[in-house]
């Protein structure tokens, strides 16, 4: 196993660490936004499972909420919801 040491000379390597926002605040890309009707939501978590962005978050009450800072508004969640609890609403 290698020992990792800082270099004495100027050293830069093409390295990254996982972190949110590597393409900025992608919520600004959105033209339509998902709105969850919590009365219809049964907490089945299919939207959470299918969301490509990890922007559907589980709430303490066993339901979901949207991370609008990063949600790109693709609409996958609305389409997979068996209870039509997510509506895509035009931004603005």
């Amino acid at each position: 196993m290698a020992r990792i040491e800082p270099a004495e000379t100027l050293f830069l390597a093409p390295l990254s660490r996982p972190a949110p926002g590597s393409a900025g605040r992608t919520g600004t890309w959105r033209v339509v936004k998902p709105v969850v009707d919590l009365d219809k939501c049964t907490g089945c978590m299919l939207c959470w499972l299918y969301c490509p962005e990890n922007t559907i978050l589980k709430t303490g009450e066993g339901k979901v909420r949207i991370d609008y800072e990063y949600c790109k508004g693709c609409g996958v969640c609305a389409n997979v919801c068996p209870f039509h609890a997510i509506e895509m609403v035009v931004e603005g």
Binding site: P18, G21, R25, E53, N54, G73, C74
Partner: peptide, 8 residues
Amino acid sequence: MPGNAACP
């Protein structure tokens, strides 16, 4: 990670 560069 949210906010990545993938298309919607």
